[in-house]
Each structure stands twice: as C-alpha cells, then as structure tokens.
C-alpha cells in the first residue's frame, strides 16, 4: 500500500526507518547482553563508593568503608545516562517547537519523554536494587536517587499536563514549556542535593571516572546498547504515530468527500 505523505508528520524521506529501528533494537539488545555477560563473568568490581562523612544508614553507622558496588553498575549507569539523554532531546524538540510551531516537533517531544520515562523507571528500579545491596535498605535519599525520583515526577507531570488540556495547540505549547523547565530543573536538583550535606541524604561519591579497559568496554557496550534500544523504541513509536495520523487524515478526507 502506497503511503500518503502527510505534512504534519514529515514523512517525506524514504529511508527504511522501520527496518533501521528493528535492527537498532536487536543490535542494542545484543550489545547490552554482551555488557551483562562481560560484567558478570569477567570485569572486576567497580572500585566502589566512599562517603564524605559518617552517616547513619539503615540503623548502622557507615563511615569510609569501601563499599563494593554490584555489577548492576553496568546496567544502571548506562540506563541512567540514556534516560537523561532522552529528556534532554525532548527539551531540544520542545525548543524547536516553540521556535517553529510545527506539530511534528510536539510529537517527537512527547515520544522522547515516553521513551525517557521507560528508561527512568528502569533506572529507578536498578538503582533501588543497588541501594538494597549496598546499604541494606530499600531506599536512601541520596542525591542520585533523589534526583531521579524528581525526574520521574517531572516526566509524569508532563503527561498529566498534556492530559489536562484539550486544545491541541495550547497543549503542545504548554508541554513544550514544561519540558524545558523540567530539563533545567533536573541538573539543578542534582547539584543542590549533592552540595548540601545532610545526615539523611548522604552524599555518596563514586569514583567512576578511572575505569580500566576491562571495565570500560562492557560499560561502553552497555551505553551504546541501551542508546540503540532506546532509539529503536522511539523510532518504532514514531512510526506507529505516523500511521495513526495518516489514518486520521484519510478518515477526514473521506468524510469531507461524502459530506
């Protein structure tokens, strides 16, 4: 069936995006699997975490004990990075929308937020598991978890805002504005929770920077793998949206010719 080119969705280029997307997802999963296997079987533990000052966590006083981070690091951090990247990209689309006022940017912003939400939830779950392993408790108000929790709330708020506005133009405009504010707020949140010491919110410094090649390779595999999976999902969602919009357009044209 020939595709009718719809202006609103910008389906002018004829790259086989659907194929690319599926390939991306498969490749991404493959890379992520490599990441996992390597991490669990070969890579040494990440030289773990060090506390800035003594903190009371889970009933025991923890000081500068070298905490060994779980292998979940190889999953958690890539997922976290990718999720944040999607929120940033969503904010970029939001800026483009406000500048150009074309509906396609609004659609892309929404979809980036959707994929971002998926990854943020994955980050939260993996982060929670990590916390359980490290501290023995299910939740700690440490900077990263807190910031990610806030980020989750911001993305959910984005969708609730969208649901509350009927007029499509206003909806697009307001959600774009909110997306920009959310993207600004998340780093601020991280910085502030990090810079202000607190007994309940221990500032956990992680020495992730100097990764040996043995650890770096699975880590990078993980990042690229996750990014590809995310991109693939995004692209597939976009295709579904485009098809839905085409159906709408055809329906409308049909109604008009009949009327």
């Amino acid at each position: 069936m020939t595709k009718t080119s719809s202006d609103a969705m910008g389906t002018r280029r004829r790259l086989p995006w659907e194929t690319i997307a599926i390939v991306a997802v498969i490749l991404g999963c493959a890379l992520t699997t490599v990441d996992f296997l390597w991490a669990f079987l070969r890579a040494p533990m990440v030289a773990g975490a060090r506390l800035e000052e003594p903190a009371l966590i889970g009933g025991t006083v923890v000081t500068t004990k070298m905490l060994f981070s779980q292998k979940i690091f190889y999953f958690h951090v890539p997922v976290a990075i990718v999720s944040f990247a999607f929120v940033i990209v969503a904010a970029v689309y939001a800026v483009l929308f406000l500048a150009r006022r074309s509906e396609r940017y609004d659609v892309r912003c929404r979809l980036c937020m959707q994929v971002g939400l998926i990854f943020i939830i994955a980050t939260m779950i993996s982060g929670d598991l990590w916390t359980r392993h490290d501290w023995g408790v299910w939740w700690v108000w440490e900077p990263r978890l807190t910031t990610y929790f806030i980020l989750t709330l911001l993305v959910i708020a984005y969708f609730i805002l969208r649901a509350a506005i009927d007029d499509p133009e206003r909806r697009a405009r307001f959600s774009a504005v909110f997306a920009i504010i959310a993207a600004i707020d998340a780093p601020i949140s991280f910085m502030i929770t990090r810079l202000i010491p607190s007994s309940i919110h221990p500032v956990v410094l992680r020495s992730d920077s100097g990764l040996s090649p043995d650890m770096l390779i699975p880590f990078l595999c993980g990042i690229f793998g996750m990014a590809l999976v995310g991109f693939g999902i995004y692209r597939l969602r976009l295709r579904i949206e485009e098809q839905a919009a085409e159906v709408e357009q055809l329906k409308r044209e049909f109604e008009q010719t009949v009327a």
Binding site: S6, A8, E103, P168, E169, A172, A245, E248, Q249, R252
Partner: peptide, 8 residues
C-alpha cells in the same frame, strides 16, 4: 491566512 495545527 491559515490557522492550522497538525491536520486541523
């Protein structure tokens, strides 16, 4: 003058 959003 056109005022449109998407296909509306």
């Amino acid at each position: 003058v056109v005022k449109a959003f998407g296909s509306r």
